[in-house]
């Protein structure tokens, strides 16, 4: 308990809405923080300390007098039509320097091209695996990749996932087999439907973008449609057409499915290197990070039971995420290659 107490002070003083309320305690803000205090009655002391901290925070203020301001404004407006020299500075850059700028831009684009080559190359290598008519790409924990299929379809393949696809698509259909999770941006081709097979479930499209996720252990599948239109076929069940923003979840064991709306950002963020946590509990949090970064967690001490983390991390280093965590919770971390130790 006392552990939480001392952190609530720091949590509060880092919150924009808390600070705003202290500065201007009006309207809804009051009712929000009154309610907060009722719900966290045991943290009243820390709450009041945080409030006092924000109130006491002080910095010398410097102001110009009304007439100084008026004066300055009239001088600003006076410069109107005669072109001010200082404001035109950059047009006086000697030509030699402008050339430099052009050269720099060229060099930069050249570097980008070289880098792009290096970045894309490993993805291409992955596709050369099986010799037969089928190829496959597989990611272990901690790796994500982008695969461009023969028809131009782009597949973002998540960690712990595998995609199998033919070397060439035939003239009638395009079929791939997925285990795990992938985001598809399918090239439109009305004459050849594109089908993703996940276990017994098939998702068929013409040209669209959608996310498919299957669970290794339960064989449950989730198809989330972002744009276009897909048809989901499950043996012994009627076909389902999804509209954008709709997702279908299929429970293999129960032979049951349900449709619902989904949060596009949350479902597809992973392909852009973004991890999103929404009221995520400690165990799930650790598991996600482990898979995302390909590391193993060792946890010592008592983990907070009511831990709920919310956050969005964009292409961030594990180290930075854990440093942020250190501030929120009383935890110490150590990263030793693929092993991460957390101590509460």
């Amino acid at each position: 308990m006392s552990k939480d107490h001392k952190h609530i002070f720091y949590q509060l003083i880092a919150r924009r809405d808390f600070v705003d309320w202290v500065h201007e305690p009006v309207g809804e803000r009051n009712s929000f923080w009154e309610k907060w205090l009722q719900e966290h009655a045991e943290q009243k002391d820390e709450f009041l300390k945080a409030k006092e901290f924000v109130e006491r925070l002080h910095l010398p203020q410097h102001t110009l007098e009304e007439d100084e301001l008026e004066d300055l404004l009239s001088r600003v407006v006076a410069v109107d039509h005669k072109l001010d020299k200082s404001a035109n500075d950059f047009q006086n850059i000697p030509h030699s320097r402008q050339w430099l700028r052009v050269a720099a831009i060229l060099l930069f684009s050249l570097m980008v091209a070289l880098l792009a080559d290096k970045v894309i190359a490993p993805f291409q290598e992955q596709t050369i695996l099986e010799e037969v008519a089928w190829k496959s790409a597989e990611n272990p924990r901690g790796r994500k990749s982008i695969i461009v299929l023969p028809d131009g379809t782009k597949v973002h393949l998540n960690y712990e996932s595998k995609l199998r696809f033919p070397e060439h698509f035939n003239t009638k259909e395009r079929e791939v087999i997925l285990e795990g999770e992938a985001f598809f941006e399918v090239t439109h081709d009305a004459s050849r439907p594109f089908t993703v097979t996940t276990g017994s479930l098939k998702t068929q499209v013409l040209g669209t973008s959608f996310n498919v996720r299957s669970d290794k252990y339960t064989s449950d599948v989730k198809v989330s449609l972002v744009t276009g239109k897909v048809k989901v076929s499950i043996p012994d069940l009627p076909d389902n057409i999804l509209v954008p923003g709709e997702e279908l979840e299929y429970q293999e064991q129960e032979k049951n499915y349900s449709k619902s709306e989904f949060d596009v950002q949350a479902v597809t963020a992973w392909k852009d290197g973004v991890i999103v946590f929404k009221d995520t509990q400690f165990e799930a949090f650790i598991e996600r990070l482990g898979k995302w970064y390909g590391v193993d967690f060792q946890v010592y001490g008592e983990t907070p039971k009511d831990w709920k983390i919310n956050g969005r991390y964009e292409n961030e280093k594990l180290e930075d995420i854990l440093t942020g965590l250190q501030f929120m919770y009383d935890v110490k971390y150590k990263i030793d290659d693929k092993n991460v130790t957390l101590k509460f």
Partner: peptide, 9 residues
């Protein structure tokens, strides 16, 4: 002063 002249122009 320079700054406001600048953004105004």
């Amino acid at each position: 002063q320079d700054f406001f002249i600048y953004i105004r122009q």
